[in-house]
Each structure stands twice: as C-alpha cells, then as structure tokens.
Simulated assay, not measured.
Amino acid sequence: MKSYLAAALQMTSLPDLKKNLVQAEELIDLAVRQGAELVTLPENFSFLGEEQEKLVHAEAIAQASEKFLKTMAQRFQITILGGGFPVPVGNGKVYNTALLVGPNGEELARYEKVHLFDVNLPDGNTYEESSTVLAGMRMPPVYPSKELGNLGLSVCYDVRFPELYRHLSQMGAEVLFVPAAFTAYTGKDHWQVLLQARAIENTCYVIAPAQTGRHYSMRQTHGHAMIVDPWGAVLADAGDQPGAAIAAIEPSRLEQVRRQMPSLQHRVFV
C-alpha cells in the first residue's frame, strides 16, 4: 500500500440518467485534476427518482452505469467505485449494486446491498427500499489492492450495522467504502458520527461519497461526503453542494493508529 489521494464525490442525482452521468464525469475529471487515484461515486449516482420509474428503466440504467464506470476508469487510469445502481434480478426487483472497477476497466469487486432501508421517519417520510430491491445474500467483499490497500465495500444503510464492518476488518480491510444517499432528516444527527464510529472501532480509513440536495419532490439528502482517518478525524468534508472531498490515504498513519490503539488485537468475543 502506498500513499495516494482518494476522492469521495458528492452529487445531486436526478431522475435523468444522461444528466447524472454528465455530472459524474465532470466531478471525476475535477478529482483527477487534483491528483485522485481512487475515486468513489455515491449510491444512486446514475439515477435517483421514484421507485417505480427506476424499475421501468432498470435494465438501461444498469447497462449504462457499468459501461460508464469502466470507461471512466480506463480514460482517467483510476480505480473507481460506483456506489450503487439497480441491476435487475427478475420478479420485478433489482439488486442495489456497488461496483469497483480498476484502471484497465476490469471489474474488481461487486457487492449487492444486504440491509434495506424500510423506515418511517418522524418527519413524515416513509421509505420502503424492499418494495423494489432484493436484499443481497452475501457479506461484502474486501478487494486486496497492492497499491491502494485492502478495500472493503458497503452501501449507505449498512453503516448502522457495525457487525458488517467488523467482518470487513477481520477480512483485512484497511479502507472502508460507505457510498450513500442519506436522508436529510437522519443525516444531520447520525451521518458523521456513524462514519467516525466505523473508522475508530475498526481503525480503518472511511471514504463516504454522498448525495446532496433535492432530487425530486419527496427526496432530499444530507450531503457531507467525507473521508475519515483511522483515529476518527474528518480529513475532508464536501459540505452541502455537489463537489468532492479529497484527502490522502497514508499507510504510515494507518500503522501508527493501529500500533497506538491495538483494539482489533484485544477482541475477546470473535
């Protein structure tokens, strides 16, 4: 693992596939111009609209999203994470799929979100992700990159389930991805503290690209894409506008924190 710059991109995705991919490309270009070698896109980066509309166009969204990620990775010679897009599985449902792609355009890892956001919030909004999404059945993978470190995948609502990240750390993860479209209501209270907790308890870097702003009439997201170091320090925060949180991933910092706070070695219940 070497020292390198990573980017957590922040988007305001819409119910418009073409516009979203144009926005994503512009932000990728921005991040690469600043030196990022690892670029991460948020959940729903290619489409964020009504659930039924997503289902109608799922096949086209899936094909375009995967092609886009592979094209961008090759064009800019970067490793890229597409934090979540629908992939049809039949029976009228999709997997919410995160895809990690290498600089040669090759698929490195794929994860189908296992925790689905079925919640009635106090602000009156109801979310029922399981109405259109089939939960993944496999624990998320850790992709071992010689240059970028061991990369652990997750998606959004997963961040509330610490056992998933403990699994990733047990599998050797050094960098945790948490691409999200966190609601504005929950984000203001929970987003940053959950990311910091996952970083601290697993002594890992956390890279969390995010959605921000209003996407359609009933959907508003929190923003604040960020990168957190293994001590829990927020290294970069994209605020509430589209843009990028960019920070250095330093193996020496990872080693220092794990040496000073060897909690992973002190676990009693495994």
Rank of each mutant, 00 (worst) to 15 (best):
residue 193 V to L: 14
residue 139 M to W: 13
residue 80 I to G: 09
residue 47 F to C: 03
residue 188 K to W: 11
residue 206 V to T: 11
residue 267 R to P: 06
residue 81 L to E: 12
residue 3 S to M: 10
residue 106 E to V: 10
residue 167 H to T: 04
residue 195 L to D: 12
residue 31 A to R: 04
residue 263 S to W: 07
residue 170 Q to W: 10
residue 11 M to Q: 15
residue 247 A to V: 12
residue 185 Y to R: 01
residue 216 Y to E: 10
residue 169 S to A: 13
residue 114 V to H: 08
residue 81 L to S: 09
residue 221 T to I: 05
residue 267 R to Y: 03
residue 250 E to N: 15
residue 153 L to W: 06
residue 84 G to C: 09
residue 35 G to E: 07
residue 116 L to C: 12
residue 167 H to W: 09
residue 251 P to K: 03
residue 29 D to W: 07
residue 169 S to P: 04
residue 233 A to S: 13
residue 7 A to C: 08
residue 42 P to W: 02
residue 51 E to N: 10
residue 126 T to E: 05
residue 149 G to I: 05
residue 141 P to F: 08
residue 202 N to F: 11
residue 65 S to W: 14
residue 181 A to N: 15
residue 34 Q to N: 15
residue 1 M to Q: 07
residue 59 E to T: 13
residue 70 K to L: 12
residue 56 V to M: 00
residue 194 L to W: 02
residue 81 L to W: 11
residue 23 Q to H: 10
residue 3 S to W: 01
residue 96 N to D: 13
residue 60 A to H: 13
residue 44 N to M: 10
residue 52 Q to H: 06
residue 115 H to E: 15
residue 259 R to A: 01
residue 248 A to H: 08
residue 232 G to V: 11
residue 229 D to E: 15
residue 77 Q to H: 14
residue 57 H to Y: 06
residue 215 H to G: 02
residue 182 F to Y: 14
residue 199 A to L: 03
residue 51 E to P: 02
residue 204 C to N: 12
residue 64 A to N: 09
residue 237 D to H: 08
residue 246 I to L: 11
residue 210 A to E: 15
residue 4 Y to V: 02
residue 169 S to H: 01
residue 216 Y to K: 02
residue 130 S to Y: 06
residue 17 L to P: 00
residue 194 L to E: 09
residue 178 V to L: 13
residue 20 N to G: 07
residue 134 L to W: 04
residue 223 G to Y: 05
residue 157 Y to P: 08
residue 165 Y to C: 00
residue 20 N to S: 09
residue 104 N to W: 13
residue 60 A to D: 14
residue 236 A to T: 07
residue 47 F to G: 02
residue 253 R to C: 03
residue 151 L to P: 11
residue 155 V to S: 06
residue 43 E to N: 15
residue 38 L to R: 03
residue 136 G to L: 06
